[in-house]
Nucleic acid binder design. Structure first.
Lengths: 200, 200
DNA sequence: GTCTATACGAAGATAGAC
DNA sequence: GTCTATCTTCGTATAGAC
């Protein structure tokens, strides 16, 4: 039973790290405050994560990336267009619900070339981006898109969404996210109906 | 002549801040190291920038945003497509020349909701994004695009470029930036030739 | 195995010597 | 006006008591 609560405490730290990185970025996320927020002693943090902050960050990024990928994969089952829309709505909800104070932890880690962010955390960020891009590209391929075009479109979607999340936070407005929606939908339609043969 | 060298020292601090924020983000950029890098005593920093780190950061963001805008405006004179290409090449050069260790300082500030980043720095970031988007949208309008479509396309370009810069850093590869290029060019062509009437 | 107490350095900012 | 020396707080990480 200790296993259960111990793993729970560990998980709480990872989830808390993801949330804090999402808001402040990695450097501004202190292990101290993280432990306090998770009601865990500071020492426990280094017991669960011998690799220190870097390990904690890497697991937080992987956790967050996988959670997003799971939702994306589920929504993509209804087709690439529905997947795209859900993806946009999901991020929109995060920035709105936090009054533009939170964004994407994967993005945050990717723009901080601090020693502790290199290595595991950066690798986890790259894996998350690759996972999301791969899911989108796969769905586009499944719906008639050519391989190369699918990868290009998927990359553009991920890049545009990430960039617009940051722009929304800077502007304290959802306009950037809302404005890219239409163009991305057009791109998805174009990619999945290359010859415009009148698919459903 | 003291004016000249004093202003030079000030400018050196601003440029150094922009460079450091570009690489590490705002939180990991210390005023101490900044002063050392600019060969200025720590006290001088607070003499030039009474507002402390926040003021320094805000000026660094504005400086960087204006520099980018100046280049973008110049290249856009040859048309939106040439402007887009130059924009992409410019960012590509930054990430490649620094071995993927530097990105966009405006983006970095936008994803760090730390107290010192709110206020002036965040406002400067929003202004930079708005300036770039405005320049692109204006050029698209000048070349036949409708107002709303121009703004959507311009926003998508800025968002996609910013996002792909972060992805390039995470992957340590220029693939993301290279992959979005084609799609963005198609979007610009579509926006400026809405009825496909065979413009020059 | 868990956690308190602490080591050690660096952060932002300032006071006061030149 | 310029800058050195310092104050205070907070960072990561650990040692050693329970």
């Amino acid at each position: 039973m200790d296993d259960g609560s111990a793993e729970h405490a560990r998980q709480k730290l990872v989830a808390g790290a993801a949330d804090m990185i999402r808001r402040r970025g990695l450097t501004a996320t202190s292990v101290r405050e993280l432990a306090k927020h998770a009601d865990a002693p500071l020492g426990s943090t280094y017991h669960y994560f011998p690799g220190g902050k870097a390990q904690l960050a890497a697991e937080a990024i992987a956790y967050s990336g996988n959670a997003t990928a799971a939702i994306l994969a589920r929504e993509l089952e209804r087709g690439p267009l529905d997947g795209l829309r859900s993806f946009l709505i999901m991020w929109r909800k995060i920035v709105v619900d936090t009054d533009f104070r939170a964004g994407c932890p994967v993005l945050a880690v990717s723009v901080e070339a601090v020693p502790e962010a290199d290595g595991p955390p950066r690798a986890a960020a790259a894996a998350a981006f690759a996972q999301w891009t791969g899911l989108l590209a796969g769905s586009l391929c499944d719906h008639g898109a050519e391989r190369a075009a699918a990868e290009r479109t998927a990359t553009l979607i991920v890049a545009a969404v990430e960039g617009s999340i940051a722009m929304c936070r800077a502007h304290r407005s959802t306009d950037p996210l809302d404005r890219i929606a239409d163009s991305l939908e057009v791109l998805v339609r174009t990619a999945t109906e290359p010859t415009r043969e009148g698919a459903s």
